[in-house]
């Protein structure tokens, strides 16, 4: 057992874990944040995507002990003051989700994608950047639409703020 401490959604947390505990299981089982999901064993489906120190990673392929000392954001940490994040709002407006299982990972990957590309996203770039996220329900059509809409809105918001 090792004591790990990290910041999760802005809160300092710690817990004793077996070293083999994956970050996703620490988040789900120890912190009770069950929005982060496990959909495969080979780090391809992306249902487990969270942000570690501001970058999207797969929490099913990272040990909790590896993440010690870092700052983690999960899907539960995205909405602020009860307001959906623009990416979450765009997924809803564009019907970018059906069963909802891949959705948290999709949203976290989308936020990271928009952070990296800013307003310079086109459909092909969005599709390439979803390489690590599998959805079985939507055919990606509305996910792509939602991400493009969110990117445009966030970019407009940034411009308005400048």
């Amino acid at each position: 057992m090792t004591k790990v401490s990290m910041t999760v959604n802005g809160r300092q947390v710690s817990g004793d874990v077996e070293d083999r505990t994956l970050l996703v299981h620490f988040i789900r089982d120890r912190l009770g944040l069950t929005g982060t999901h496990v959909g495969c064993d080979t780090s391809q489906c992306g249902a487990c995507v969270v942000h570690m120190d501001g970058k999207a990673i797969k929490s099913c392929s990272t040990l909790a002990v590896q993440a010690a000392g870092s700052s983690i954001t999960t899907i539960e940490g995205l909405a602020k003051d009860g307001e959906l994040h623009p990416v979450q709002a765009a997924f809803k407006a564009n019907h970018g989700l059906q069963c909802g299982f891949c959705t948290p990972g999709m949203v976290m990957a989308a936020v990271d994608m928009i952070n990296r590309h800013g307003g310079n996203l086109d459909e092909a770039t969005v599709r390439e950047n979803l390489e690590g996220n599998i959805c079985r329900c939507t055919g990606y059509h509305n996910i792509v639409k939602a991400i493009l809409a969110a990117a445009a809105e966030m970019s407009a918001g940034r411009q308005a703020a400048e």
């Binding site: 929005g35 995205l78 989700l97 909802g100």
Partner: peptide
């Protein structure tokens, strides 16, 4: 139903 899925509360 979207809000709960989008906020990790499914």
């Amino acid at each position: 139903e979207d809000k709960r899925f989008l906020t990790g509360k499914g």
